[in-house]
Design a protein around this nucleic acid. Structure first.
Lengths: 136, 136
DNA sequence: TATTGTTATACTCTATAACTATA
DNA sequence: TATAGTTATAGAGTATAACAATA
């Protein structure tokens, strides 16, 4: 057990998290990437599709089919940007906002269970440090 | 920034870690999974290939080609288990041990840099909590 | 019957290049 | 010349089923 690599530790935790989240996502009929897109758009609309792709760390070419699907379900809309007619502003519809909120509730329950082994204070500290590592 | 999902935070950190580790792995001519296998075998030999696959969270059918490659390079050996003639014990050769130690040094340098934003005490606390989350 | 190592196959992801329309 | 959105294609990664040998 002597000093395991960070990569191995992260791998195990992330695999466990993804496994626990999958039933929630499937229940709401969305993929992990679809949820990532909905989350980003819930925070703020995207000024372009490339901007959205970058925000969630996804490929711009794969984002297209994803947005097609979300648009078909009426969860997002693509509006041409009057200022730059190449670009599409992407935003959530009311249905998209509602869907995101519902999924997010389920996801948060799963997260709480994953962090269960830590005390409340530890959970706050862990989250804070992880946030710093993610945005440094 | 309000209370981002754990999944998004982990995703960003892990992506950054993998990106930083890639040059180290490439320099030593191994894939991420090869390094995971070497690390597990450095800890202790595997009693069977399925055991190794489970230990590193990999698929047993994909592990075969990986071990073929590592064996071709003389880093691991597969020995038939006298007690169970279906199973192969997998262990590192001296060359495998040396290769693993060399890669590990590079990986640890990358990890130290990733954790740089945290103080030494925070790094210890973070690692300890991550270990608890990984093994609970 | 179940399990180990293996192969084969189908499927999903992912990366790359190229095209169009704008800028 | 560069960028946004898009499409097509090739390659890598993944999952599944099946098989022979052994338990």
């Amino acid at each position: 057990m002597a000093d395991e690599d960070l990569g191995a530790l992260f791998g195990r935790v992330v695999r466990r998290l993804m496994h626990a989240e999958q039933p929630v996502l499937r229940e709401h009929g969305v993929s992990m990437w679809a949820y990532a897109a909905l989350s980003s758009l819930a925070e703020r609309p995207a000024t372009s599709q490339v901007a959205l792709a970058k925000a969630i760390g996804y490929d711009k070419t794969r984002l297209i089919a994803l947005l097609d699907e979300l648009a078909r379900e009426g969860l997002v809309v693509r509006e041409p940007d009057p200022a730059d007619r190449r670009a599409h502003v992407v935003r959530l519809t009311p249905a998209g906002k509602a869907r995101h909120a519902a999924i997010r509730a389920g996801i948060h329950a799963v997260e709480a269970e994953l962090l269960g082994p830590l005390s409340a204070a530890e959970q706050r500290a862990f989250r804070a440090m992880l946030t710093r590592l993610a945005s440094s």
